[in-house]
Amino acid sequence: MSDWLYADDLIRMIDEIVSNSKLKALDHNGHTHFYSTPSDDVINQIAGVIINNHARALRRAPRLGATLIDDTLIGQFLSNFRGTGSAIISKKVTFDYFLANPLISADDKYYQAVAPWKHASRYFALASWGYVSTTICGASRDSVYYTLETPYAVNPYHPAPSDMQPIHDDLEALFVPRVKPVEFINLLPFDRVAKGYTPTKWERAHRIIGLGEQRMTLNEALDGVNPRTIGEGLRKASVEVLSRPIEVFQYYLESRECYLVDRHLMLKSAATKPKKSDIGTPQERQIKREREATEFGLMALQLVKTELELLPPADRPNIPAFSIIGGKVTFAV
């Protein structure tokens, strides 16, 4: 009798581990994080360095105080599975096991390798509550994330896909209804995402999740950058498009404040150590925002003044002469 196992055998083991409540197979701190690799089509459109979404998720999740499937007992089990008995592989990636498995034909190797992960991912989505965040930018519509994690995160009663068995009643009872509700996905209220879901179609929910992720990652990328630098960059980048970039900058500052408040709440609610927040009192934030906007305005005015001085007097537009002295604008005498 061969010691090589099929995906069904691993799925059975996953079920046993999950059903044992003492093992806390999918335990997390109220914040789960999903990831998915971009599709080839998306990758081909990216200019410059491409960082794999799994690698990005491994970096982002600890910063967000989130738990990845890799961090759970089930994830550890699958990541480290090398076989049983005499059928053991030296590498430790699930696909290597099925590639080496002589019982499985070439066309079945991929399917066998993905099946246990799909099964575990469905449980992980069902086990989610509290906050959910993602690193799924550019994910394929064929991905495990899109086909399983999105719909099961939104609706625990989501019908099983045609290529998967429904979850056994005893196991389903562990997750459905959820112990606690999912409250936010990528810092967006759950209801907003749920509106984009039906049991047969959830593209809109996916798009909202994707926009939420984009908002988060852009804020993360700009974290720590001097607002003045951002203001200047905004002006430079938009000079031919926006007539009033200062309004855009103002909106940027407001939206950033919203993001920081939301992120602060998220980190506070997760059972990890909250990071030091940039948030002060509302009055402090208002003063800071006005100062930043004023600084931007002064820069813009100085620029206008310089431009005027570069023009021959006859060509100058009808703008009253002014001076900027000590950070204040005065009419030139």
Binding site: D3, L5, Q76, F77, R82
Partner: peptide
């Protein structure tokens, strides 16, 4: 992390 290794010699 040791958990997966256990499966390497666990006979099913």
């Amino acid at each position: 992390i040791e958990f997966g290794k256990i499966w390497s010699w666990l006979k099913v």
